[in-house]
Simulated scan of single mutants.
Amino acid sequence: MDRKDIRQVPTFLGDSYCCEACEKCVAGCPGLAITLVNYRENPELPVVSIPYEFTRQTIKVNDRVSVLDTEGSELGQVDVLSVHAIENNDRTLVVEVNAPHEIAQKIAGIKVQDEDVTQPLDHYVAHIEDDTIVCRCEHVTAGEVRTLIRAGYRDMNEIKTVSRAGMGACGGKTCVSLILRLFREEGITREEITEYSKRPVFVEVPLGILAGANGQENHAND
């Protein structure tokens, strides 16, 4: 892996046949940073496995989809061969597509919305619909969270435990504000809510070590 830019294509260390293309790495990476390019059947039109964290209803076999690179630029359109989940990673789907070899290794994702979706709305959305995804990491809908709120849950840590909302790799950067909004829609005041416990640093680190002060940099390397 290029340490200066982790977005570059990594080098696989090992025999070319020791990878079984099980796709567990594709589904298991929390950052959706791994795609798998399988040249074995057709080197000119390899199969590319892409992680996909939207519902099955939004994509199906034989769909023609636009694929994107790491910069979000369109590479072209490809045909969907398979949409499936990996055991123990069923919240992330794996989409297999046929792609020309010229773009296969550049594919980082699938375009999921039209350009006009990002334009400002001409009206204020007063109510979040139940099928809206509030936690993208764990694929939790507003309806799931709203059901818990109506059942009496006021501690966001409990909501996280039950629904997994906020348990993803991003640490709740998107869903926290949306869940607080759901509380507000249900008439729950901020004072009644116990917010998420902030994730601490895995190991406590004195600032002196980070600054290299008082010779503590040697201790950091022990």
Score class of each variant (00 low, 15 high):
V9A: 05
P10H: 06
F12K: 15
D15N: 11
D15K: 11
S16A: 04
Y17A: 12
Y17N: 14
Y17K: 15
C18M: 13
C18W: 10
E20G: 11
A21H: 05
C22A: 00
C22V: 00
E23F: 01
C29K: 06
C29W: 06
A33I: 10
I34T: 08
Y39V: 08
R40N: 15
L45G: 06
S49E: 04
I50Q: 05
I50N: 07
Q57D: 12
Q57P: 00
V61S: 04
V67T: 05
T70P: 03
V78K: 08
D79W: 02
A85K: 03
N88Y: 05
T92N: 07
L93S: 05
V94K: 03
V95R: 01
I107P: 14
I110K: 04
E115M: 07
E115D: 10
V117E: 14
T118H: 06
A126Y: 09
I128R: 04
V134W: 07
V134I: 15
C135N: 14
C135V: 12
R136L: 11
L148F: 13
L148W: 15
R150L: 14
A151T: 01
Y153M: 09
N157V: 02
I159M: 13
S163P: 01
S163A: 01
A165V: 14
A165D: 12
M167I: 00
G168E: 05
A169P: 00
G171N: 02
T174Y: 07
T174R: 10
L178S: 06
L182M: 09
L182F: 03
F183A: 02
E185A: 01
G187A: 10
R190G: 02
T194A: 10
E195C: 03
F202H: 12
V205L: 13
L210P: 01
A211F: 01
A213L: 15
Q216N: 02
N218G: 12
